Simulated scan of single mutants.
Amino acid sequence: MRSRRGALSEVYDLLRSEIIAGVFDPGAQLVELVLAEKYGTSRTPIREALRRLEQDGLVERGERGLRVRTRSPEEILEIYEVRIYLEAMAASTAAQRRSDFDLIRIRRAQETMDDTSTDDPAAMAAANRAVHETIWAASHNGTVVDLLTRLNNHLTRYPATTLKTPGRWPEALQEHWAMIDAIEQRDSARAHDLARDHMTKARELRLELYRADPSA
């Protein structure tokens, strides 16, 4: 028999993955009874999963109850306004605090990204995220890592990756290596500015993708 915590974790993981995958459209109502029947469980783990997803930013409250959070260009601007600041802070702090082991992890993540096939958008996005996460970790600031992780949860509702924009992949690789070099050299000012510019480009590309296709 599954424990209560196990049932909650399973329902949360399933519902989260389906929201990210677009099984539920933005704005779709999330009714506890309907979801309980869908996943073959009681309403209690559904209620708890929805509460966690609301904290994650994937679910919001509407006039008729909880629903999948809607998308908008205003939200993209809000997310990136904060993310640009935090990514720059993380890179700058990583340059000051990184250990030799941190640098090894960052380089390995980047080498994996370099070797990632451009025929697999999901793998491209995952490899890119892994590089950023190792830089966050090298900042040794748990609050920054937590906030960036939460912001990334918001962006998972925009499934198209900016890395598939023509020319962006090789450009992003070069920008990453420049940031890594600044971190290795403990040049916090340069690491800050490179990360800021890197994420500013990502914001502009994300807005272009949204304008071309709001469902992307």
Rank of each mutant, 00 (worst) to 15 (best):
T93R: 12
R206G: 06
A94R: 01
R4Q: 14
E175D: 15
T200D: 05
D25F: 14
E133F: 15
A172M: 07
R52Y: 14
E18C: 09
I19E: 03
D115A: 10
L103K: 01
I183Q: 00
M199N: 11
T118M: 08
V59C: 04
R206A: 14
E37H: 02
T162L: 06
P73C: 09
R186Q: 09
P45H: 03
R196K: 05
A94Q: 03
K164V: 13
D146Y: 09
T41W: 05
P214M: 00
T200I: 03
P166G: 06
S17R: 08
L35D: 10
R150H: 11
I76M: 06
T165V: 12
D100M: 08
Y12S: 12
T161W: 02
S9T: 11
R105N: 12
D56S: 02
S17T: 14
T149H: 11
Y210P: 06
T93A: 13
E184A: 06
A109I: 07
A191G: 00
L173G: 15
A127M: 00
D193H: 01
A125E: 08
S9C: 09
R67P: 05
A21L: 03
S117Y: 03
Y12I: 10
E48R: 04
V131A: 05
V31T: 07
R5H: 09
F24G: 05
A172G: 11
Q174P: 15
V59Y: 01
R4V: 15
A36S: 14
E133T: 12
T156K: 05
L8R: 11
R157Q: 11
R47Y: 10
L173S: 15
E32N: 15
T41Q: 05
